[in-house]
């Protein structure tokens, strides 16, 4: 196997499904194949997985719990676990999904041990988790969505619960499906994830409709000034 040069400056890619930046032969492989390679002991598959997901995992872990050292330990444990058990791992199509699910469980278990708290308590007791910001900088196109409009979305997001915010970020930002969100957040049924996300989206939609009205108003004003 070809060894891959580490690239710590890997862009914090929004989709998270980005292919490696270097020219390794993994460019053309599916995640499922890379995972199978990893299970067979390939070092470059391990490199690929770490390089692509270590920072995503760290960010996600820190949203669950802001003890950075604990999150780093959990990430290391997670990788050691999958290396130790690699031969018995199930095949996966989306590596990030597997890693997120495992990391979340690991962090919650560790917190539970540390503090003797029931799981749900730890996860949602602190309001300052999974905070969302709507930023015009993140837009790739010429921003029709001005700062004012982003502020409306921001304001709407503040009305969401921690659990809703986590689900919305997993769904919008990380690009997971409802089914995956349900599994990552340990919700049992896909329906629960759907309901949770639908409710959050309804709040967002109200904000977006306001934006729409504003755009319309602006257009009217603009038209009037020519009359």
């Amino acid at each position: 196997m070809k060894s891959i040069k580490l690239n710590p400056d890997l862009r914090f890619n929004k989709s998270g499904f980005s292919k490696p930046v270097d020219n390794s032969n993994y460019q053309s492989y599916s995640e499922r194949e890379i995972w199978i390679d990893f299970k067979e002991g390939s070092d470059s598959a391990l490199s690929y997985i770490y390089r692509n997901y270590a920072n995503h995992l760290f960010n996600y872990g820190c949203q669950i719990n802001n003890d950075e050292e604990l999150v780093r330990d959990c990430i290391q444990d997670l990788f050691i676990d999958i290396i130790r058990n690699r031969k018995n791992l199930a095949n996966v199509n989306v590596i990030k999904f597997y890693l997120f699910t495992s990391l979340r469980r690991k962090i919650l278990r560790k917190l539970q041990k540390q503090r003797n708290h029931p799981t749900e308590d730890i996860n949602y007791q602190n309001e300052a988790r999974f905070e969302i910001i709507s930023s015009p900088e993140a837009l790739m196109i010429n921003e029709q969505l001005s700062e004012e409009k982003c502020r409306l979305i921001d304001f709407a997001c503040q009305k969401l619960t921690v659990k809703q915010r986590e689900a919305v970020l997993l769904y919008f930002y990380e690009g997971f499906s409802y089914k995956q969100v349900a599994e990552i957040m340990d919700m049992g049924k896909v329906k629960s994830a759907r309901i949770l996300i639908y409710r959050a989206l309804d709040v967002l939609e109200i904000a977006l409709n306001k934006v729409k009205d504003q755009l319309f108003l602006l257009l009217l004003l603009f038209a009037n000034s020519f009359l």
Binding site: Q63, E131, I132, S134, L139, C157
Partner: peptide
């Protein structure tokens, strides 16, 4: 596209 983590952390 505009939505992201308020505090994005990296190692």
């Amino acid at each position: 596209q505009s939505i992201k983590y308020k505090e994005s952390k990296r190692l």
